[in-house]
Design a protein around this nucleic acid. Sequence first.
DNA 1: CTGTTAGCGCCTTCAA
DNA 2: TTGAAGGCGCTAACAG
Lengths: 330, 330
Amino acid sequence: MVTMRDIAKMAGVSHSTVSRALNNDPRISPKTTEKIRQVAEDLGYSLDIRGRVLAQGRTFTIGLAIPNITNEFFLPVIRGVEHKAAEFDYSLILCSTRADMRFELEAVRLMAERRVDGLIIAWTDDFEGIIGKLEPNKWPVVFIGNALEDSPYPFIDCDHRSGAYDAAKHLIELGHKHIAFLAGPLISIDAGERLDGYKQAVEENDLVPDMWEGDYTRSSGYTQGKKMLSCRRRPTAVFAANDWMAMGVMSAANELGIKIPEELSVIGFDDVAPARHLLTPLTTVRQPAQQMGRTAVRMLLENGKPKSKRVVLGTELVVRKTTHQAIEKR
Amino acid sequence: MVTMRDIAKMAGVSHSTVSRALNNDPRISPKTTEKIRQVAEDLGYSLDIRGRVLAQGRTFTIGLAIPNITNEFFLPVIRGVEHKAAEFDYSLILCSTRADMRFELEAVRLMAERRVDGLIIAWTDDFEGIIGKLEPNKWPVVFIGNALEDSPYPFIDCDHRSGAYDAAKHLIELGHKHIAFLAGPLISIDAGERLDGYKQAVEENDLVPDMWEGDYTRSSGYTQGKKMLSCRRRPTAVFAANDWMAMGVMSAANELGIKIPEELSVIGFDDVAPARHLLTPLTTVRQPAQQMGRTAVRMLLENGKPKSKRVVLGTELVVRKTTHQAIEKR
DNA sequence: CTGTTAGCGCCTTCAA
DNA sequence: TTGAAGGCGCTAACAG
């Protein structure tokens, strides 16, 4: 492996001159620069960034910890982070923590040892554990999700409440009077906010809320869907707190011979790829996942230290094929 | 940031003793070791791997270049690579090359500068360009896909031919006589092999092949699907060379009022998540993507140099809901 | 405009 | 069982 010293010897200059020339330092004469570049080329030199890393104290690397790389939902986040990092010529170290505290702490250790210049932690379940590990080192970190009211750490999230409100409102405007809501696990903050958004819209319009609880999995959507659709007076629309559950509800409806969207409107949340690709694609509230990833990187890298402590992005109602005018008087 | 020298001073030993103690070198007495660990703990020491990296000439990092992180298909590959790398306490640098030669070479440069210990290049379109960049450096590299007959580089792929054969055979065994095949872009090697597998099965059974060409996109599946299903004598089954096209065909059938699977069987290839989540989930040939990722890492890390130059994994026919007995005599 | 020197944090050979 | 010294590849402060 050829180093700057090799080039220096060959070109008859000092290695620092080589370093400067290769970094376009204007103090080096064009002639020397040219010569050095030539020699470098001839020798097939390739910069070894590890030297620079040690000398400059930066690694040009950011770390991303994702709870579960199995879930398609995170793909756009990864994409956003990767693309933005590449723009800065930064590389991305990816860790999937499998939603397991142990792996999560392992990931933090690994990234810490590598002295990444910044850390993005997405939707961790063990916020406390993470910040416990992080605090002493005082690294630039941005959380995605985990929008704790009083978090002293910068985070980025989207507005679950207003997103849910929009979804419910959409159904109401289509004339639905009986809109069931299938909530996520209510320990999670965003699940609570989505519920609030639903409640607000429903109450503002003098409708009566009809709440069910799921756990964000497709199978919980299916189970609860079966139940709610077998009721004597079943809802004409259901708003599931995420797309996976919405898909579960659709399966249930399908098995019960209930036609979507003619007899039942369904709306989800997140805009996950599989739901977009259904034969009748799901109407949903898009969480701007990719942009969240990009923004996280920007917060980390742009202003040195994250300046804006908290960023809350808006959501977007994406009307596709599963929502429909309510049927007049069943 | 506290270093080994700080610990050494504090503990009244030399920094090399600290290094050894922290690395469990048996030559250091248990007492000193214990003391050093204690001091390290007290000082909140965290290993800075960058020093080791430079001293040992390894980076404990592998790079993964993926053509397009937008495509869900690659997710399991990333997962496989990430998990296996983590087992070795290696970290993963992820680059999405957006199926663009420029980004691809950028990615190789980035990984080269970082001196990753191994490189995994997945389904590159510019094989020649890549190996041009790689050759001089002679890095351990494993390709995923790009199974060139005479490739001097180690690769891992799956058996597209036999996978396609199995799929076609499955339809034949269900009694289908008219099985259309929607091929991928035939410049790509695997598209050709999938076509071969189909042909072989069909010919072995004295059926007449019915071939259409798509480009692996959903929309091409839709367009071609519309055409083939509007034929006077339309097929009773279609085998699409990947899941995306299969989904396109399903949309087309849906719009034409053709019931799947009762009136039309559809089978795909790859086993991509969205196809798995359809209301009537797609029967398909699973490419063991995750295992391919794991194996690639193993090839890179386990035997020092990749020993087995070429690995071809089997596929698995996953029968779900879109395939059905052929209707007797239409 | 260029060279000298020191140093980033760690590992490792050699010597004691 | 431990210490001293040198080096990995690069950058940077200081001289000239």
